[in-house]
Simulated assay, not measured.
Amino acid sequence: MTSVRANGVDLGIESYGLEGDPLILLAGGTTMLSWPEALCERLASAGRRVVRYDLRDSGASTTLDPENPAYDLRDLAADAVALVEALDAGTAHLGGIGVGGMVAQVAALDHPDVFSALTLVGTRPVAPGPVDEDLPDHDHAVMSAMFSRPRPDWTDRDAVAAFAAEGAESMGNDPEQARETAARIWDRTPSSDPAVHQANQLGMVFSRIDCTPRWRERLGELDLPTLVVHGRADPFFPVGNGAALAAEIPGSRLLVLDDMGTALRPTAADRIAAAMVAL
């Protein structure tokens, strides 16, 4: 792992594969650990250079004030563009999960010459806030239960990992995978500030950034191979969001994984890698 200066910020990255191979750039949601190592390794073994990275205010990337971010969604999209240039790649297949999937949509729409393909995982075609009437909203019972849970001491690594594991099943995720990922996110957080740890674990910074103007109405402009991956057990962005996204992007493919919630499972690495390489 290292960091790269792009668009005026330092972005934490991790690379797999050979530098001369076609680039697959994976935007974190919000940290790079949203993309399992198993998937990165499968893609690299298929002849791709894979770089996963942390969004601003997360992981090893520049962290200023996650509670008051001074940038917007299009700045995050511009980060992806600048990272492709900094990696001397010319173009890239751009993947985004959750928050990163929204970043990826805007990046491809605003910079169509930079991106050659899209993979959008567990995301939707509108930003946080009031959802369009035709899109299924968060499962309110699950969200109410999740957000009513007592918060851990964010400076206690074991407590944070246990908190993640205890809430995993309700999000359709594997508790042990959630525990391990939370501990690794905690280890990679370059701050002892509880607010920064909380932001890294919960991705709360994204709910505070400006996501206007809308981009859903422009999705028909996309003219690049696109894979939409969604978990049938996702209560945060229910699967209808992925179906709507795929329906609005010309020629896209929808891959629904029955045992997936909000998190990619390493056990699905082979299937997802094959679908991405086939784009």
Rank of each mutant, 00 (worst) to 15 (best):
M1K: 10
D10S: 13
D10T: 05
L11W: 09
G12M: 03
D21Q: 10
D21G: 11
I24V: 11
L25E: 05
T30L: 06
M32I: 11
M32A: 15
E37I: 14
A38S: 14
L39A: 00
S45T: 09
R48C: 04
D54E: 05
A60Q: 15
T62R: 01
A70T: 09
D79Q: 04
A80H: 10
V81W: 02
L83K: 07
V84N: 00
A92W: 07
G96D: 10
I97C: 00
G100M: 02
M102S: 13
Q105T: 12
D110G: 11
F115R: 13
F115L: 14
F115T: 14
G122C: 04
G122R: 13
R124M: 09
P125T: 07
A127T: 11
P128Y: 06
L135S: 12
D139C: 07
V142A: 05
S144M: 08
D156V: 10
D158W: 10
A159T: 06
A165D: 12
E166S: 13
A168H: 01
A168I: 08
G172F: 02
G172V: 01
D174K: 09
W186D: 00
P194M: 00
H197I: 03
H197L: 06
N200E: 07
R208S: 03
R208I: 12
W215I: 05
R218Y: 11
G220R: 06
G231F: 02
A233Q: 02
F237W: 03
A246T: 05
G251S: 14
L255F: 13
V256G: 12
D258L: 06
D258V: 13
T262C: 15
P266M: 04
